[in-house]
Design a protein around this nucleic acid. Structure first.
Lengths: 204, 204
DNA sequence: CCAAAACGTTAACAAAAGATAAGAAATTAA
DNA sequence: TTAATTTCTTATCTTTTGTTAACGTTTTGG
């Protein structure tokens, strides 16, 4: 879709978020904007669901989402994304294969969307395809670093250590996310997280 | 370093490995080769160590390596890489910050190396910088997919399920890697892995 | 505003995993 | 080859975690 009626406020937030990775000049930005869409997802509605290809990568302008899988009929939450972060069922988006999990809004969430088709158009764009490739590389590398930390924590830390480190890294998480989702995120049961909190006396 | 005396055999293996991501024409390849180095690491020697910046990304022509952290004086192995795979302390290489772990050769290992400096030169190269950016993006995206699977397995699967899935994905691993390293990789103790093998009667 | 659903804590019990140590087998190095 | 080291298994004991269920509280939706 080559058109855009996204609010200037949302676009400003988006542009500031991108600045962590790359800076677009005015000509490039003008070319960029028509490749974007805006969407509001209501609380509990899904951004991406199992067995369907995730066609968009989103940038969260406001709100939050959780990623979850269903195993033996039970939901298991693996991750959260908040304002100024990207959201996508990455493997599905990148490989264009059906996803294995769900992404659901934890609250009403406003998103700037880039479809796979528009992304590919921009990556091959004569004006700024080169810069878009760099942008894509830097974003991907950023997530590699995040994922590396997360895997290392599963290998080297106990659940209790993961809980305490999470409170340092993301102090607001217990306020913003139901505790049983956080427990899943830490790789333990809700009952177990409740015990850790009682044991450490750290409820932040 | 702008020179190269890497064997044609190693270069062929490397070029075939890259073909999973991108194909270089002859002019590009001719430009590529002088940015490469070759190194053989003896068994038990280190490719990368804690508190030092990892300056290279390697492509394993032959051999294998393990990634490990040291916690409370004990080594904990988090991952392995084999022939035709890349190896690096990625976060350190990508951010140019000191690494938190070690990468050690499990056996004598031959590597084609790209230094950060040479990588950056190629990413900005007038002839094929655009293609190199795409190459870098595709490699990074590939690792995002791998990491996503690994994190999902920690969240949704039991150690026993991880063990069985690993045997499907990498059947040769128990033959090539000491079992207590594999146990760490699965996020459990060596004693626990030994029990799982006895319990399931699957020793493949 | 009320009823239903979701949430967090706690308890009791079961299952799994960690810690430690001993011993046998395999590998490595001198 | 031999001695030392590493590796894997097994056993015992302890700790942690999982499971299930009950209870009170909070949140949600009509």
């Amino acid at each position: 879709m080559i058109s855009s009626n996204i609010s200037n406020e949302a676009l400003d937030i988006f542009r500031k978020g991108l600045a962590h990775f790359i800076t677009f000049n005015e000509a490039e930005w003008t070319e960029f904007i028509p490749h974007l869409n805006y969407k509001v997802i209501k609380k509990r509605d899904h951004f991406s669901i199992k067995d369907k290809v995730c066609n968009d990568i989103g940038f969260i302008v406001n709100g939050s989402v959780r990623y979850y899988h269903v195993k033996d009929g039970t939901e298991i939450t693996g991750y959260f994304s908040f304002e100024n972060e990207f959201v996508s069922s990455y493997k599905s988006f990148l490989t264009q294969q059906p996803g294995t999990g769900y992404i659901q809004a934890l609250e009403q969430t406003g998103l700037i969307l880039i479809s796979r088709k528009n992304m590919d158009m921009m990556l091959s764009h004569p004006l700024f395809g080169y810069k878009m490739e760099r942008f894509g590389r830097l974003v991907a590398e950023h997530y590699i670093c995040c994922y590396e930390d997360r895997i290392t924590s599963f290998i080297t830390e106990t659940p209790e250590e993961r809980y305490l480190k999470m409170l340092e890294t993301t102090p607001e998480i217990m306020q913003r996310v139901p505790q049983h989702y956080v427990a899943n995120f830490l790789g333990i049961t809700p009952v177990s997280l409740s015990r850790i909190r009682k044991r450490t006396l750290i409820y932040a």
